[in-house]
Structure formats: structure tokens, C-alpha cells
Design a protein around this nucleic acid. Structure first.
Length: 490
DNA sequence: TTGGTGTTGTGGGG
DNA sequence: CCCCACAACACCAA
């Protein structure tokens, strides 16, 4: 019982499956659970109110403890490199623990913090628990470069074996004799929800492409924000699913729920292994495209006034609720980029980063590249129709009517294309297109064909060593990865 | 070297 | 209901 420990919460806002927190409690006299409000985030990223609120609630959840334990979570504002040294001295800290975070800013921040800790004689213990695997190990196993397809990724992780089991939450026994400032109040509600909602049959049958982007209540788990902030451990989720699968016939990756966790892991891996992953320029795997600069169109997309009800309804749900179905993300992402507006995926990435509760640096960048056919996905001639796609799962446009009440009186026949309705019908619906609801800002039938040709030209312009022979890309990637490897050898 | 395959397209044809 | 054209890249198996 000799250490004074800080456990620094960043992601991983939970007590269960938190190996770094357990490490902090070992031989510990006093534990200080800490969350820093790092000004780098509001200064360099976009965070809408909904997402702040989710974070605050998650922190409150961590902090909410039975009064009798007199517990608390320390929340301090300021840059980590300024705040932590003060706390090291004030609390006579000998040990700092935290969960490994692979994002570029986090990596540089943690490197600085580790240097400082050394100066103050503080032992640092980082532990992996945000991802299913050690991402570096996946890259190493794949010849020191990130696997570029899901199939390849699957074969690499299969060779590694299943993810590690989650570690248990600290018990009252672990805390005996420790001055604790945190509560052991797990997100019970959430775990109960998993047990309750995840009826076995539903879990076993789950196939992502069969779920609906526009059902009125979500057709998927909606656990992504919890996983994003680490309120729910991906490993805990994985092994709970394994329990549910046991002995039953069940769906398989890529479409199963295990498959969804592997998609997350896939983009975490590529984000670590590919330089400039959230940008087009300097990103060796990203097709270089001459995207248009069109602030009016971008604003119309962002503000749900493209004149395409399906697109506008999705963007409205995004703004109001901070969550939209994965396929809805496909529809609006394709529309913004290669499908209709020909605006850079980086612009869409910024809007999602701000509005999605589950906005995750790696997944956001990876999926935008996928949807814009800039990397990972290359069948750019497969363009989502802003009219036809939604009809498959919502013939009468109930989803549109929910989020765009101005259109609620339109008959099903015209709900996806109100501009085609005769004026008499528009009048009867109490909504004149061009006055009460915008006219479509582009002619989809025309622009999407033109855009396919522009995409074709962008692909053709890639230098031969960029596309035909992968050597060119590999060379670039490995040189970066060599550096990365050296850095990560502990 | 070649041919097949890949989470989630559309519109036209039979 | 299935099949095709549209026609690209990364990877793998033969």
C-alpha cells in the first residue's frame, strides 16, 4: 500500500474492463480518478451540444456514487501538460495509469505526458482496452502494413485468435484500505439494456445489410455512442455476444454483430497504419479528386434543405438526435460527394464529427473514404439514389414525414419527389415546392452520371505506381510504419 | 498470370 | 424472382 495513483479517464469512461484502473489500484494508498477537460478538443474539433451532453452524462454516471462512500471523480480543466504536473506535486503522485488511445493527437499528447511523468518520478502504466486487439500487433502480423480489405483483416485477426477477455470491475475488496474518490456505480442500466434488448434470437439473426436506415425506431443496437466513449467496453460486448451465440446457429462477420465490432477494429487499424488518414492530400491510399468548392450546396446539405426529402430527413435526424442509421450515413455521404454534390468528403467528415454522438476519429475518416470511393471501396458507379434507396424500406415515407413535418400531407406517390406533384396536390398538402420546401438543388439523373465520369477520370489520373502496382503505396506506407514500429517498441 | 470475390446500388430486362 | 451492364481495386487461390 505505497502508491498514490492517478487514473486518467479519457475514453474508457467505465469501471468494467478497465485494466489501467485495476493497475492503479494495485499496492495503492490513495487513488485519484481524474478527467481533464482538455481545451485542445473544443479548439481543434467540432462538438455539438448533443455530444457534450452525452459526455457530461457519461461523466456524471462515473461520478454518481452512493453518498456514504463519499466518492468523486475529479474533473479539471486545462492542457494535460500543465495540469498534470501540478497534480503530481499536490497529491504526491507516484503512479499514473491510462488507457491507450491510438488517435494522432492522443499519441502526441501521451508522449509529452510520459516525458513529464518521468521528470516527476511518476511511473506510467498504459493499458490497451479501447480496441479488441493491440492494433500494432495486427499491423505487424500483416507484414508491417495495415490490411486494406476486410477479408484480409479477418484472416489476420483469425491468426491472432479471439480478443482477450475483459477484466472484471474493481470490487469493494479491491478497494479495502484505499482512499477512494470514485464510485463503483457501473452503468447498470446499460448492461441491463443489453440483456433485455439483445434477445438471443435477434442477436443470432442480426445481419447489418438487412436492417433499415429509415425505420421510426432504430433497427440496430444504437450502442455506438457508448462504445465510442468507452462507457461500454468493446471486449465486454464481444464476449457477451459470444455467450449469446453459444450453441446456436448465428450470423457471421462481416454482417453479424461480431462483424460490426471487427469493422470498428478494421478502421482503427488502417487509421494507425496510414498517414494523413483524415485528409485526401498526403494520404497514399486516397484517390485524389478535384472536388468542387461550393459553399451554397454544402450549406444546403448540412442544413437539410437539398430539396430531396430522404436526404433532408436524415440530416434533420442527425442534427436533432445525434444518431442516424449506418445506411442513412451512406445515403447522405454518397449524395454529398461522388453521387450528387461533388463536395470533398473532408467537409462531410467535419459535419459528422460535430453532430454524431458516436463520432470517432478513425471510423469517421475511414467510412467517408469508403463512401466517397476514395479508398477501400472502388465501385464508384454504384450510386445511391436519393429517391429510390429509401423507398425499399419505407414505401410511404413515414420517416420523411416524421422529420420533415412540412411534407406530412403529401401522398406517398410524391413524398420522395414532391417537386413532381401537380400544383393542386401541393396546395392540398399545404406545401408549395419552392416556397414551403426547397426545389431539388441538383438534377440527380444528370449529375450522378456526370460524376461517375469525373470519378473515372480521377482514377485514371492516378500514376501507374499508385494503382496498378501496389509497390509504390507499400513503399510509402512501410517507411512511415518503420518509424511507428520503432516508436512503439517499449 | 489469370480469374474470382468483396457488408449494404440502380434501372432495365426477362 | 433473377440477371445484366456499369466496369475499379486489393487480395487470394489456382
Amino acid at each position: 500500500m505505497s502508491h498514490n495513483s492517478i487514473h486518467w479517464f479519457r475514453k474508457g469512461l467505465r469501471l468494467h474492463d478497465n485494466p489501467a484502473l485495476l493497475a492503479a489500484l494495485e499496492d495503492c494508498r490513495h487513488i485519484y480518478p481524474l478527467f481533464l477537460l482538455d481545451p485542445w478538443y473544443p479548439n481543434n474539433t467540432r462538438i455539438a451540444n448533443n455530444r457534450w451532453r452525452f459526455l457530461i452524462e457519461a461523466l456524471r454516471d462515473l461520478d454518481s456514487s452512493p453518498k456514504k462512500l463519499n466518492s468523486r471523480l475529479f474533473v479539471v480543466s486545462g492542457p494535460p501538460t500543465e495540469v498534470l504536473p501540478k497534480l503530481f506535486e499536490k497529491w504526491k503522485i507516484t503512479r499514473l495509469t491510462f488507457e491507450v488511445d491510438t488517435e494522432p493527437y492522443s499519441q502526441s499528447r501521451d508522449k509529452e505526458v510520459m516525458k513529464l511523468a518521468k521528470e516527476y518520478g511518476v511511473e506510467v502504466i498504459p493499458k490497451i482496452s479501447h480496441t479488441l486487439y493491440n492494433i500494432d500487433r495486427i499491423i505487424d502480423k500483416n507484414n508491417c502494413k495495415p490490411p486494406m480489405t476486410y477479408v484480409r483483416f479477418q484472416s489476420v485477426v483469425k491468426a491472432i485468435g479471439p480478443p482477450k477477455k475483459p477484466v472484471p470491475a474493481p470490487t469493494k475488496e479491491d478497494l479495502k484500505g484505499i482512499f477512494l474518490d470514485i464510485m463503483l456505480n457501473e452503468k447498470r442500466l446499460l448492461l441491463e439494456k443489453i440483456d433485455f434488448v439483445f434477445l438471443q434470437a435477434w442477436v443470432c439473426k442480426f445481419e447489418k445489410p438487412q436492417t433499415s436506415p429509415n425505420s421510426l425506431s432504430p433497427s440496430t443496437t444504437v450502442l455506438s455512442p457508448y462504445v465510442r466513449f468507452g462507457c461500454l467496453s468493446a471486449r465486454t460486448f464481444w464476449w457477451r455476444l459470444t455467450d449469446v451465440y453459444r450453441g446456436k446457429k448465428h450470423s457471421e462477420p462481416p454482417v453479424s454483430l461480431h462483424g460490426q465490432l471487427l469493422w470498428r477494429e478494421f478502421f482503427y487499424t488502417t487509421a494507425v497504419g496510414i498517414p494523413n488518414f483524415n485528409r485526401m492530400e498526403g494520404n497514399p491510399h486516397c484517390v485524389q479528386v478535384d472536388w468542387d468548392n461550393n459553399p451554397e450546396h454544402l450549406a444546403a446539405w448540412r442544413e437539410a434543405r437539398t430539396g430531396f426529402p430522404f436526404i433532408d430527413a436524415i440530416m434533420t435526424q442527425l442534427r436533432q438526435e445525434g444518431w442516424i442509421h449506418h445506411l442513412a450515413r451512406h445515403a447522405v455521404a454518397c449524395f454529398l460527394t461522388r453521387g450528387d454534390l461533388w463536395i470533398s468528403w473532408e467537409e462531410g467528415q467535419k459535419v459528422f464529427e460535430k453532430l454524431l454522438l458516436d463520432a470517432d476519429w478513425s471510423l469517421n475518416a475511414g467510412n467517408w473514404q469508403w463512401l466517397s470511393a476514395s479508398a477501400f471501396f472502388h465501385q464508384y458507379f454504384r450510386v445511391y439514389s436519393p429517391i429510390a434507396f429509401g423507398k425499399k424500406t419505407d414505401k410511404y415515407g413515414d420517416y420523411i414525414k416524421k422529420y420533415l413535418p412540412v411534407l406530412r400531407k403529401f401522398p406517398a406517390e410524391y413524398i420522395y419527389e414532391p417537386w413532381k406533384a401537380p400544383l393542386s396536390i401541393q396546395e392540398r398538402a399545404g406545401c408549395i415546392v419552392g416556397k414551403d420546401y426547397p426545389r431539388p438543388i441538383v438534377e440527380h439523373e444528370v449529375v450522378h452520371k456526370k460524376n461517375i465520369q469525373r470519378m473515372k477520370a480521377a482514377y485514371a489520373k492516378r500514376s501507374p505506381e499508385d494503382n496498378t502496382i501496389t509497390k509504390g503505396v507499400k513503399r510509402k506506407a512501410t517507411s512511415i510504419l518503420d518509424m511507428f514500429e520503432k516508436k512503439s517498441k517499449r
